[in-house]
Computed example of a mutant assay.
Amino acid sequence: MTATTIDEVIENLEQIIQQSISEESTFGYFAALYQNVTINIKEKLGKGYFDDDKRMEQLDVIFANRYLDAYSNYKVEKEITKSWEIAFKSSTNSMLIVLQHLLLGMNAHINLDLGIAASQVTDDKTIASLEPDFNRINELLATLVDEVQKDLAEIWPTLLKILKFSKRVDDFLIDFSMKFARNKAWEFANELVKSKEVEKEKLIELKDNEVSKLSEKIIYPGILVKLLFIIIRIGERGKPSDKTRALEKLVEDKLDNL
């Protein structure tokens, strides 16, 4: 399921979405959200938003392939990073709310994969020139949480009221959205490009372990957050396919307008 263009990324994500819907799998949640972000990036190409469109499409494809390869390898029981393994294994955890499934995917993909992808489209001499576009792609990625909250409101309209009711839940969302990821992914990319090839594998392993610990916190949050999540889980309506379609609705509208 490896992609070579941004259009192929969108197509492959659509395959995962449709397969997840037919199998009643929660895998479709993150795929639907990620397809939305990819479409946003595609819409920005060729319009002066990025300094280097060619490099940004290359980054997008390499970045997406980290997820696509992890998904494909997990399906055939091949070894993958710990952070993705935790996210995928959690797909059968019936106690997790949709938001937790999405945050697990965001955590693995942004906090681990983004820095790796950025390091693969540049080197220690040219990485500084990537920073403005890297920040712009981060701005697009930062919309993930906003899109999550807006789309999940269709699954359970009272969700936003509960999230706003508790500042602790608010802080939980911020901590696992872009607050941690913005600077850390860029720092990780710089660390990788400045390291020798023999050191990179160890750095990735260490980062994977760090991100995996965050995954555990998403699955097992504090007592107050956990109690509110239980209430949310009881109120979530529909099967996984219904929830995936709710998340996909915005994506379909964007595809129609391309």
Rank of each mutant, 00 (worst) to 15 (best):
Y34K: 02
V193W: 00
R245L: 15
S25H: 11
S129R: 12
N107G: 05
K78S: 13
N135F: 10
W84T: 06
S72P: 04
G28E: 05
F176Q: 02
E77R: 14
G48R: 01
A181C: 01
I127Y: 02
E79M: 08
Q149R: 06
N40P: 07
N107I: 01
A70L: 12
D175V: 05
V61Y: 07
V169Q: 12
S177P: 03
E252A: 15
Q15Y: 14
G222W: 09
K164Q: 14
T143G: 07
T26K: 10
N111C: 13
L96C: 08
N138M: 03
K47C: 13
F50I: 04
P132W: 08
N107Y: 03
L104C: 07
I6Q: 03
L258N: 15
V76G: 09
N40E: 14
R55L: 10
L163Y: 12
A87E: 03
Y67P: 02
L163C: 12
E43M: 15
W156A: 09
E210M: 11
N135S: 08
K217G: 08
I6G: 03
K213Q: 13
L104S: 07
V121S: 04
N107V: 03
W84I: 07
I21G: 03
E131A: 13
E187Y: 12
R233G: 05
K150L: 09
A117L: 05
A117F: 06
N107R: 01
I116C: 06
K167D: 15
S212G: 10
I137S: 00
V193G: 02
V9M: 02
L13D: 10
S119C: 08
H109V: 06
S91P: 08
A32D: 05
L192R: 01
D60K: 11
L258V: 15
L247A: 10
I231C: 11
L160Q: 08
D171Y: 11
D124V: 15
I86T: 13
S20H: 11
A87K: 05
I10D: 07
S90N: 12
L144W: 02
N190V: 13
K249F: 14
E210S: 13
F165D: 11
F50H: 04
D146W: 00
K89P: 14
I10G: 02
E201I: 12
S91C: 10
K125P: 11
L247I: 11
D51Y: 06
D113A: 13
T244E: 14
V193S: 01
L258G: 15
K78C: 09
L247Q: 06
I223M: 11
